[in-house]
Every structure is written in structure tokens, then in C-alpha cells.
């Protein structure tokens, strides 16, 4: 056989082999979605457990303090409990990874709902923080050490919160993009 004809045949072979690769890519994509959803779920549960541990000092303050500190402790404890409840609810509505390949449209809707609840939770946390700041400035104005300590704690908390939220939202974005690709493939088939 002429080597030029042979090359044409080899080219067709390459194209055929690459055409078969889509199945592997779909499997790879499905694996990525599963891994990302599981990672997100684990991360959300870890955050819930950490939030519960953070509630311990609030409860301790609630029991052993009085006056202004007791009011702050009540406020913080109620706020933390509500945050944790909302966070656990948010984790429970996270769709199952297997839904992405079975019903990508429903999976996308559930991921959208998860994202909305998560963002609502962030706003709720920010409102709590804002109330705390204003309250501390008004009531604890005389106690400058309290304002300074609160401000430092607030800034540290805000930075940690932003990093954690950024990670969760990036993960959600990656899952939604992969699920969208799976949806397009399914539609094109």
C-alpha cells in the first residue's frame, strides 16, 4: 500500500478512536461531579460541627455572665443556633451526585436551591454581625477594651467566613458547570 494512502487510513483510525472517547469523558465528568458533591457535603458537615463547638463559649457566657454580657450571650447563642439549623438544612438539601447523570435538569435546580439557601445564610450571618457591632458600639462604648476585642474578633471571623464561603461557592460553581456540560451532552444525544 502507498504510504500516503496508509496515512489516510491511519488518520481515519485516529478519528474513530477519538470518537469513542466521549464515553470515557462522560464517565470522567460524572466521577468529577460525584467527587465534588461528596467533598462539598463533607465540608458542610465539618462547618456545622465547628459551628457547634463555637457555640460552647456562647453557652458558657450565657450561664456565667450577667448584665450586658448576658444579653450579648443570649443574642449570640440564639443567632448561632439559628445559623447551625439553617446550615444543616442547607446541607440536607444538597442533591445526590447520582442525580447529575440520571436527571441533570432536576440536579441543576437542586444545586440552584442549595446556592440560594447558602447565600441567604451568609446574609443572615452578616446581619447578626452588623447588629452585634452596632450594639457593642452603643452599649459597650464606655468599655473600650470590649470594642477593640470585638472588632479584632469580628475581623478575624469575617476573613475566615469569606474564605470558607468562597470555597463553597467555587465548589458549587464547578459542580454546576460540569452538570451543565452533562446536560448538554444528554440533549445532543
Amino acid at each position: 500500500m502507498d504510504n500516503i494512502d496508509e496515512m489516510k487510513e491511519q488518520w481515519t483510525l485516529l478519528q474513530n478512536k477519538l470518537n469513542q472517547q466521549q464515553i470515557i469523558n462522560q464517565q470522567l465528568l460524572s466521577r468529577t461531579v460525584t467527587s465534588n458533591v461528596n467533598k462539598l457535603s463533607n465540608f458542610m458537615w465539618i462547618m456545622a460541627i465547628v459551628a457547634l463547638f463555637v457555640s460552647i463559649p456562647c453557652i458558657w457566657l450565657l450561664v456565667y455572665s450577667y448584665g450586658f454580657f448576658k444579653d450579648v450571650a443570649i443574642f449570640l447563642t440564639i443567632g448561632m443556633v439559628l445559623e447551625v439549623v439553617l446550615h444543616v438544612y442547607n446541607t440536607l438539601i444538597l442533591p445526590k451526585a447520582s442525580d447529575a447523570s440520571i436527571d441533570p435538569v432536576a440536579f441543576q435546580d437542586k444545586m440552584m436551591k442549595f446556592r440560594k439557601v447558602y447565600i441567604a445564610n451568609i446574609y443572615f450571618g452578616l446581619i447578626l454581625l452588623l447588629v452585634c457591632i452596632v450594639w457593642s458600639l452603643i452599649k459597650g462604648f464606655e468599655m473600650s477594651y470590649l470594642v477593640v476585642a470585638g472588632a479584632i474578633g469580628g475581623v478575624i471571623g469575617l476573613i475566615i467566613g469569606m474564605l470558607l464561603n468562597n470555597r463553597v461557592l467555587n465548589n458549587v460553581r464547578a459542580i454546576r458547570e460540569d452538570a451543565q456540560t452533562m446536560k448538554s451532552w444528554k440533549e445532543n444525544q
Binding site: M7, Q10, W11, L14, K17, L28, L29
Partner: peptide
């Protein structure tokens, strides 16, 4: 590096040890 896995092809399968794979490698 992104968190997502790129949609990569399985090169080992393309350049497999069978006749077709050898032909592709030759090309």
C-alpha cells in the same frame, strides 16, 4: 490548576498495543 478535571482523552487507549494503536503512533 483548576478544581475541575479537564475533559482529557485517554491517550493510552489511542496509542494502544494493538494494530490500530500502532498505526496511529506511526502516523
Amino acid at each position: 490548576k483548576l478544581d475541575t478535571i479537564p475533559l482529557s482523552v485517554n491517550i493510552n487507549q489511542i496509542e494502544s498495543d494493538d494494530h490500530e494503536g500502532k498505526q496511529v503512533a506511526k502516523l
